[in-house]
Structures are given as structure tokens and as C-alpha cells.
Simulated assay, not measured.
Amino acid sequence: MSRTTHLLYLHGFRSSPQSVKARKMALWMAREFPHVHWWCPQLPASPRQAMADLLAGVAHWPADRMAVVGSSLGGFYASCLAQHLGCPAVLINPAVHPSRDLAQYIGEQAAWHDPSQSIFFDAAYIQELQALESPTPSAAPQTLALIAKGDEVLDWREMLARHQAGRVHLIEGSDHALSDFDHYKAEILEFLGLA
């Protein structure tokens, strides 16, 4: 894999570029890899719009030197982008069946990092997610999946079954947010060709 010069970070459902992991990665890039083009957008609630915005945003990036990192729903989007663009992706507790899991969140939802803000998750977004859910990833995906057995939101067995064709780090314990994210810094940077 080529060294990454363009890196995209995708946050999870109801999250934002202010998430702990997004801010930590932004800091790592600014301090240690200032030459890397960093983009961590606020994703719209509509999955179709999110994917359209992301594809437009990376349209002029060098395909052989870009990578994507995503957490939870952002991990699902990262997996979709990696398949579509053929780029490497780091997937942190990635959603596998978001159309099923997010069906209970239709309506107004408070944002995690600022409860005064909210998003509206429309029923139509479930169909948009279904359209993005492919049966299986490519035979040899360039992915590193960090999967925590202690994830309290998503089933680690589903994540493992979905992403086992790529590289997997199955983590004993931890949680959905991967609160011990710093422990995996070296592995993430090495996978991205930055270490």
C-alpha cells in the first residue's frame, strides 16, 4: 500500500467531527503528519446525501494515496467507500445492518456532543441505507476492522462475520466508543502507511 496523503474520517450516527476519536486523529495528523490532507466533515442525516457529498469531496483525491477511517455508522460508510473506490479503510466497530439497527431512531434525535442540537432521521433514510447494504464485501478488501467484544451497541459477531476477509483486530472488552482508542494508534498509523 502507498503512503496515505489524503485521509477522510467519518463519525457515527448522531455524532460529529467533535467526537473524541475524530479530535484525536485530527491532532495526530496536525502534529505528526501535517503534510496529510485531513477531512472530517459533518455528515448529513440522509445516507444518500452523505455518500453523494463524500464521493464529490474525494473526487479529485489520488485514489492510490487516500484512505478512510470510520466509526460505527461512519464505519459502514467507510466500508462502502473502500469498496467503491478501492482504497484502504480502518473500520472502528462498524455498523453492519444500519437499516435494521436505526429503524428505532426515526424522528428527532439529540446530537451526542451538543444536546441543544438535533437531527431528524426520516423513515425514508432506512431505504437509503438498505440500498447501500451489499451482501458481502469484495474478496480481498483493504480493511482493518477494530472490533470490540465489549461493544454495548453492536454485535461483535456480526461485525467479525462481515469483515473477516480483511484484517481484523478482535479486542477483548472495551466498548462501542473504543474508549481505549489510543492503544491502537500505532496499528492504525501502520495500516495507513504513516508509521
Results as ranks from 00 to 15, higher is better:
Leu55Ile: 07
Leu55Ala: 07
Leu55Phe: 10
Leu55Glu: 14
Ala56His: 15
Ala56Met: 11
Ala56Ile: 07
Ala56Phe: 12
Ala56Leu: 13
Val58Arg: 12
Val58Met: 08
Val58Pro: 06
Val58Lys: 05
Ala59Gly: 00
Ala59Trp: 00
His60Cys: 04
His60Leu: 05
His60Phe: 00
His60Gln: 12
Trp61Asn: 11
Pro62Asp: 05
Pro62Ser: 13
Pro62Glu: 09
Pro62Ile: 13
Ala63Thr: 13
Ala63Trp: 07
Ala63Met: 13
Ala63Ser: 14
Asp64Asn: 15
Asp64Gln: 14
Arg65Lys: 15
Arg65Leu: 04
Arg65His: 15
Met66Cys: 13
Met66Gly: 04
Met66Asn: 00
Ala67Asn: 13
Ala67Glu: 11
Ala67Ser: 15
Val68Gln: 08
Val68Trp: 10
Val69Met: 14
Val69His: 04
Val69Ala: 12
Gly70Glu: 01
Ser71Asn: 09
Ser71Thr: 13
Ser71Leu: 02
Ser72Tyr: 02
Ser72Cys: 08
Ser72Phe: 01
Leu73Val: 03
Leu73Glu: 00
Leu73Phe: 01
Leu73Tyr: 06
Leu73Lys: 04
Leu73Gln: 09
Leu73Ala: 02
Gly74Ile: 01
Gly74Glu: 01
Gly75Arg: 09
Gly75Leu: 07
Gly75Gln: 06
Gly75Thr: 08
Gly75Met: 09
Phe76Thr: 05
Phe76His: 12
Phe76Asp: 03
Ala78Gln: 03
Ala78Phe: 02
Ser79Glu: 06
Ser79Tyr: 01
Cys80Ser: 09
Cys80His: 10
Cys80Pro: 00
Leu81Tyr: 03
Leu81Gln: 03
Ala82Thr: 08
Ala82Tyr: 06
Ala82Val: 08
Gln83Phe: 01
Gln83Leu: 12
Gln83Lys: 09
Gln83Ile: 06
Leu85Trp: 01
Leu85Met: 10
Leu85Lys: 05
Gly86Val: 09
Gly86Glu: 08
Gly86His: 12
Gly86Asn: 11
Gly86Met: 10
Cys87Leu: 12
Pro88Asp: 06
Pro88Asn: 11
Pro88Glu: 07
Pro88Met: 11
Ala89Tyr: 00
Ala89Asn: 01
Ala89Met: 04
Ala89Asp: 03
Ala89Lys: 02
Val90Ser: 06
Val90His: 08
Val90Cys: 05
Leu91Ser: 05
Leu91Val: 06
Leu91Phe: 06
Leu91Glu: 12
Ile92Leu: 14
Ile92Pro: 00
Ile92Gly: 00
Ile92Lys: 00
Asn93Gly: 12
Asn93Trp: 05
Asn93Arg: 05
Asn93Glu: 04
Ala95Ile: 02
Val96Ser: 04
His97Ile: 09
His97Ala: 13
His97Leu: 14
Pro98Leu: 10
Pro98Val: 12
Ser99Ala: 15
Ser99Asn: 13
Ser99Leu: 03
Arg100Cys: 08
Arg100Asn: 04
Asp101Glu: 15
Asp101Asn: 15
Asp101Phe: 08
Asp101Met: 11
Leu102Arg: 05
Leu102Asn: 11
Leu102Val: 10
Leu102Glu: 05
Ala103Asn: 13
Ala103Glu: 15
Ala103Cys: 12
Ala103Trp: 10
Ala103Val: 09
Gln104Ala: 15
Gln104Asn: 07
Gln104Leu: 11
Gln104Ile: 13
Tyr105Gly: 09
Tyr105Trp: 14
Tyr105Leu: 10
